[in-house]
Design a protein around this nucleic acid. Structure first.
Lengths: 152, 152
DNA sequence: CACACATTCTGGAATGATTCCAGCAAAGCG
DNA sequence: CGCTTTGCTGGAATCATTCCAGAATGTGTG
């Protein structure tokens, strides 16, 4: 797994300019994995004083396509970002509050899954999302979101 | 798998009122599996003449929570609906054009996956999405969306 | 078969996450 | 230290989806 430094080295290594916003975004996500863009905006503002929303989105995109961040978007919830990249771990999402937790690969190591019949698609990534209720929401449930619960 | 009739029986069985819009939505999705809400609106209008966007969203929600439809939402693309429910099949999504195709369960039958460590979550559904390029886009790629390609 | 009532549908406005745009500011090379 | 490239600001726009209030329609009861 990759959850490297918060100084500029990892940025420079990937040919990205080192800016305070980018470092702050990385720091924010080190402290709060699975944060939403909005969470990151708040964290970065608390850290640097003031940053525009777009600056944060730009950073998130730049860092994501450089492979320093991973983006996941649970159906019905805003996107979340995390620093664990490279390992193919998966996620459990709470259908009540949207909380996300990491789950290590079920069936061994990467690639842990290969589609049986891929209809001619050139598949390069298998994404697994588990849906359920987090410990807190299991006690007193609320609304609900995400795919319908089936018999698992 | 469940891809039943387009007359009102399946609706009545689930205690839903039989309305022309609902039947039209079911028909539309029989002909075009993995259609977006917008696709359905167009299909239903071509069929019935005029329906409001909300009527379609209402139908989609009603049918989905009744278990007659399944909703899937590929990151970065509008939600898609399909009539195959009950079986736990998965999807391949094209990161270029967003096309979706069905993939049968990789590792056997439902439940084909169980999270190793679920952090106290009560998991009830495992959702698998494969990302890649569809046959058409593999020829001449375009933009790109969805999670970053990793080494699979 | 007619009614009454609960649902569903209409049209229009609102929301929330994310993106686009044009101009200013900072990063990094020489 | 100056230049060019890249990143940041603020404000407006987009897109899917939802909320609202009132009109229309399906359905079980008398």
């Amino acid at each position: 797994m990759t959850t490297a430094s918060t100084d500029g080295t990892s940025l420079r290594e990937r040919g990205l300019r080192v800016t305070s916003s980018r470092l702050a975004v990385l720091r924010a996500l080190s402290e709060h994995p699975h944060a939403t863009a909005d969470d990151v905006v708040r964290a970065v503002r608390a850290d640097l004083g003031s940053v525009s929303v777009q600056a944060v989105y730009d950073c998130l995109h730049a860092l994501t396509s450089a492979g320093l961040l991973r983006r996941m978007e649970p159906a019905g919830h805003p996107a979340r970002y995390e620093r664990r990249t490279g390992d193919n771990h998966h996620h459990v999402v709470c259908r009540s509050c949207g909380a996300v937790a990491d789950v290590d690969c079920t069936v061994g190591h990467a690639p842990c899954l290969t589609p049986s019949a891929s209809h001619g698609f050139a598949v390069d990534l298998a994404e697994v999302t588990f849906w359920g209720l987090c410990p807190t929401c299991a006690v007193d449930p609320v609304p609900a979101a995400g795919p319908l619960s089936t018999t698992l």
